[in-house]
Every structure is written in C-alpha cells, then in structure tokens.
Design a binder for these strands. Structure first.
Lengths: 330, 330
DNA sequence: GTGAAAGCGCTAACAG
DNA sequence: CTGTTAGCGCTTTCAC
C-alpha cells in the first residue's frame, strides 16, 4: 500500500482496484487520525481551490441576504465552498485584491456591487478568474451576469397603486449610474402611460440607495405643489426613509400617502405600518450566478441572463391604501 | 538575477542587497506582467494562507454588522484578508468544515454563533486552528473569546426606563442557552433591585432571538394582569417584534408602553417611532477578536476578554417616554 | 493490480 | 553579494 493508492482511495477513484479490505483499512485510518488533505498542497497540484468568492457591498444590507443564501446553497450543491468578501475593500485595497483574486486564492468570483466603483476591478479580475456580476448587467463581454426583471417589479408596484385609485404617483429612484435605475424607472413610466397618465418629471426624485436618501427625497416630494398621494420607491430602504419623512411631516401612511418599495426583507413586516413591497427572486439569482460561474470555469462563454421566474409579486401590507378622496372601492 | 533574488526583492527582503537598478527592474517587470505570487504555492511553502475566517450566524443580521466591519479593518491592518462563512453551514456540513477548516484553507477562525450548535465544532476546530469566539464566552480553555458588557447594557436600559418614572418594567430575554442571556437578565434584575423594586418572575418572558419571538413574548406581557408600562428587550430585533405586538393590540408607543432594545442598528432610527437602544462597542469587539486570534497564532495562550470601553450608551429615540400617570417630569 | 517518482510554484537555506 | 537547490503535501502518470 503506497501513498498514491491512499490518495486515490480517499478521493474515491473508481479506476483504482485494490482489495476491499485494504480500502476499508485506509478509510478507517483516515477517519481515526481525522485526516484531511492539506488545502494548499491540493490546490497547488490541482490548480483549483474549491472556493468561490462572493463580493458584496455592505454585507448586512437586508435586501440582499437572499442572494447570499441562494449562492451558498448552489455552491455547496456543486461541491464548492462560498466565502464572502467586502466588495468595497476589494475595489479599494490593492493588496487584498492581489491576495485573493490575482493570486488565485479562489476559483472565481461573484460581484454584487451597488455603484460602478466595481468597474475598474472587473476588468482586472476577468483577466485572472471567471467573474459573474450579480444583479447588474455586465458591460464587458468577458464577464457574465444575472439580473432580475427590474422593469416588471416597478411596473407591478405602480399598478398596485393605480388599482387603489391613485393618479399622482411619485417615483423615488436609485442613483442613475446603476443600470437597474433606468430599468425600474422605465417600469414606473410605462405603468403610468398605460393607465393614460402623464409621468411628470417633477415626481421623479433621486433617493440615493439608503434610507437617509429616501427621507431627503420624500421631503422634496412633500414640498411639491399638488403633492402626489402615492410613492414607488426604487428599493425598500428608500421606502423606509420615505415613511420616516411622512411621519416627521405629520402625514399618515397610508391614509394620506401610500408607499411601496422594491425587494422584500425580514423587518418589512415589523414596521409601523408594515411596508408593502414587490418581491423579486433573489435567492434564485444567487443560485443562477453560481451556475453561470461554474459554466464559465468549464470554458463556456460568459452570458447575460435575465431571471424572470419566479415572477415578481406584490406583497401588500399596511403602507398602501386607497387614494384619499377617490371613489375607488376596496 | 535569479528566481531567489526575485522572490526576495518582491517580498521586500531587507537582507537582500542588489543594485538598486536591478531591484527596480524586477519590480517594474512584476508590475508590467501583473505578476502575483500563486496563493496555493505560497501557502504551501509558508504554511500560512493569510486568510482569516469569520463564521457568522445569519450574515444579514443588522445587529452584528459592526462586528464584521471591525474584524475586517483589524485583519487588513495586520496584513490578513477576512472571509465570511455561514456558521450554520460550517456546523452542519461535514464537507464544508473539512474543506475550509480541517484542511487549513484559512489560518484561524472567528466564531460568532447565536446558539450553541457551535459547541460541537469548536472542539473539532481548536485541534486544527486557532479559534476565537466572538460575543460569547468560551467554555473551552483552548479557545479564546471576547464579549462586551452585557450586564451593564441591560442595567443602563433598565435605568433609563426607571428614570422616566416606570416601576413595572418587563424583560424580554433571549434564549437561555446563550451565555449572554443570563448576563443581560442580571443587569435588568440588579437595576430593579437597586431601585428598590421587586423583579417579578412573571415579567420575564422568552423572546427567542427574532422579531417573531419578540412579538409573541410581548403578546404574553400584554395579557398579564397589571400590565407593565415599559419593556427591556434583550436585543433590538426582539424589541421590533414587541413594538409590532403593541401596535396590533392598539397600544401607543411610547404613550402607553415604553420599549428599549439592546444593540443599535441602521434602521432603528427609521422606525415609527424610532427605537431607543443601548449601543455596545461591537466594532471594537470585532477588532479585538482578530488581535486575540493573531496572538494565539503566535503561541500566546487563549484568553477571555470582556470589552468595557467604549462604554455602553443609551441612544434615546421615540420609543421611550415618561410613565403614564406618574408624576415624573421631563 | 500496485508502487515509485515527477512536479505543481514558491521561499529559504546554503553554497559559491 | 548572488545563484542553485531542496522541499512544502498532494495527485497522477508511468513503469513494474
């Protein structure tokens, strides 16, 4: 019995034929000694680490936790281990980038970024490792990407409000330099136009990507003459800030203003009132991203994919209600 | 110029003396070719990966995001890279544990767990790698740990309520099998006793560790005869659930019931009303944990450390107010 | 069917 | 002061 045979027995090599008894003796000894092949040696020899990186902007952003969960599941399924890193650090800190990406400490990386601070690192990365962008469309043919149906989500959110009798529906957008921004804005615009309404430019306010930004944006909406009776927020953190602004201004939600956000998240149901949201298939987004990454590793061409199933869905909670003064019945 | 010299030049070896011109030529070529030493080969040779793992239970728990941020900073400071993993997966999935920990894909691991599902893996891990428990006291002398001043936090929260004139102050505890639970409960109890009050057993209800649990717990409190006028929640997620339960029961916060939670988090200020919390130095907790881990790596004995600075602090927002019917002035 | 040996890319020790 | 070389622990090919 030699070291070669042991290695092959432990990795369950089918082409190895030794006596069953010997095989069992090897496996037994390995378990007894709690043996695990050294990661570095294995990686060096096989030029593969079995690790997939997921770079996230703001780990604790509650809107995106499902992406992580989905990626986790899919990675394990495929025999990989998922490790998270801070995307901003990766983009900012040369040394961290070098250690993790350039030196191939991981087999590939999933990039979830909010702004395009990432753009610079994407190109660098793609030269070394397979990359898949998560929840943003790749501008680079060497980099795959997956997105959800942003247009549809905003359309559904707006229609929900329209069905409640609202006519003046404002839109709190996320920063324009994100590609999602335009798609979601388009959804709101199309819903308004389909309903025979004119989407007023003054009803579109930039809400940044935080609750703070949402609050400021809503304050601007409130001071608008002919104030809208309902608001679509491009994401639910912005919606949260909008609710705060209403509360500060003494406006009742949903009696005086209805608010709906995009993306469901754990605390949405615990707000006062509960926040009505449109949910998107983020878990599946995470899973699919891993699969695309693995496909690229096997030499397939990077592709962009828009995930449209499961479909976006309105989850009505307390923050949306009938338009005040409308004849709408519910 | 040989490979040895190049390696030493790139790692800035002081004892290497070559012509300045040669050194620059090496560095220049490395930059030109975008060269980075292969991680696996380097790790194998140096028996060190430069990676520190942080295993978290529920990545997106907003209460703990500062721990991650602190650990991140300290790791980079020390020339390491921090990678996050799901603690539950690590505890559950043998294969993931093997790949990441047993095979030494990382140099050490920080363990942040909510329940003691971790207990089983701690022992296993400590045999292979340095481990430091974060925000829980280590039961194992081979494993270091850092905690914050849980007793003080609950004491401050309770005193804040007492100062507002409340006498009947309930306590929503986290699951008892966490060591934090007893320390925080003790803080509430001591504050009550110091104020000459009797901490009633029926005012202690288990709120689990989620908003859902907090809601159930608060429902129980509400149906108590001689209902308390104020509530300390052992963490802010529980407090969130408690607020929801009040709202559902038609109880005004803070006019009829005051609520305070432990741990500040980003959305606390955006709730309606804003949640009063006691903040704890979680960022420093993360930093310190990394330092202890690195100390252990250098052969120092694992220690337990309680972080008492910066001190816990009450952040008063809208969810706490004077006791209804009390003569307290504010 | 089994065992020996090459070599993955790097660093550190040592010989020149 | 610089260049050569051994060897980290593993897998896999090749010779027996």
């Amino acid at each position: 019995m030699s070291v070669g045979a042991v290695s092959r027995a432990l990795s369950a090599d089918k082409t190895l034929s030794i006596r069953e008894e010997t095989r069992e003796r090897i496996l037994g000894a390995a378990k007894m000694l709690n043996y695990s092949p050294n990661h570095a040696a294995r990686s060096l020899r096989m030029s593969s680490t079995g690790l997939i990186g997921l770079a996230v902007h703001d780990v604790s952003n509650p809107l995106y936790s499902d992406i992580v969960a989905g990626a986790q599941t899919a990675a394990i399924e495929a025999g990989y281990v998922l490790t998270l890193t801070d995307a901003d650090v990766l983009a900012t800190d040369e040394e961290v980038f070098r250690r993790l990406v350039a030196s191939k400490a991981i087999d590939g990386i999933l990039l979830q970024t909010v702004d395009n601070s990432a753009d610079s690192i994407i190109a660098k990365t793609a030269k070394t490792l397979p990359v898949v962008m998560v929840n943003a469309e790749s501008p680079n043919p060497e980099v795959g990407s997956v997105t959800v149906d942003d247009h549809q989500a905003a359309l559904l959110a707006t229609n929900h409000l329209l069905e409640l009798g609202h006519r003046k529906v404002a839109y709190l957008t996320i920063d324009e330099h994100e590609d999602r921004a335009a798609r979601r804005l388009g959804g709101w615009r199309d819903a308004m136009i389909d309903a025979g309404l004119v989407p007023q430019a003054r009803w579109i306010v930039n809400g940044g990507h935080s609750s703070e930004g949402g609050m400021r944006a809503m304050e601007a909406i409130i001071s608008t003459p002919e104030m809208p009776t309902a608001v679509v927020a491009a994401n639910s953190l912005i919606a949260l800030g909008a609710m705060k602004a209403c509360q500060a201004a003494g406006l009742q939600v949903p009696d005086q203003v209805s608010i709906v956000g995009i993306h469901d998240f754990p605390t949405a149901a615990y707000l006062n009132p509960g926040l009505t949201v449109v949910s998107l298939p983020l878990r599946q987004l995470g899973e699919r991203a891993v699969q695309l990454l693995l496909d690229q590793r096997e030499g397939k061409r990077p592709v962009h994919e828009k995930l449209s199933a499961p479909a976006a869905e309105v989850i009505a909670r307390g923050s949306t209600g009938p338009c005040p003064g409308s004849t709408h019945l519910r």
